[in-house]
Computed example of a mutant assay.
Amino acid sequence: MKATVDRDACVGCGLCESVCPNVFEMDSDSIAEVIADVIPPENEDCAIEAQDDCPVSAITVN
């Protein structure tokens, strides 16, 4: 699985980083970025949770 973040849509709330810190982090502009090229199997559930809970639907996991 891989994750992407629509940087134009991200509002920098930090939810994804708090839910799944091994996959997402906030950059110096407070915009989410993906830090895992491939989501480790043990982090797939939290990455999907971050996608589902993102208030602006900026995250895609597939």
Rank of each mutant, 00 (worst) to 15 (best):
E33G: 02
S30N: 11
E42Y: 06
V5C: 01
P55G: 03
I39W: 02
S28P: 07
C54K: 11
K2Y: 09
V23L: 12
S28D: 15
E44A: 04
P40N: 13
D45P: 04
E42C: 02
S28W: 11
N62E: 15
G14H: 02
V61W: 07
V5D: 03
E17H: 05
D27C: 01
S30A: 07
D53Y: 04
P41T: 10
V56S: 04
V61M: 08
A47R: 05
A32L: 07
G14Q: 01
G14A: 03
S57A: 12
K2G: 05
G14E: 03
D45V: 01
P55E: 02
E17S: 00
N62R: 12
S28Y: 10
E44Q: 14
I35D: 14
D52V: 02
G12H: 00
A36H: 09
A32T: 04
E49A: 10
N62I: 13
I59Y: 07
P41S: 13
D8C: 05
E49S: 10
I39A: 01
A32F: 00
P55C: 00
I31L: 10
D45M: 05
N43K: 04
E42R: 00
A9R: 15
I39S: 03
V5Q: 00
S18D: 14
L15R: 03
K2D: 09
D37S: 13
A58E: 11
E49Q: 10
I48D: 06
T60R: 14
C46R: 06
V19F: 05
E49R: 13
I35Y: 15
L15K: 03
D6A: 12
V56Y: 04
D45L: 03
F24Q: 15
P41A: 14
V23A: 03
I59R: 08
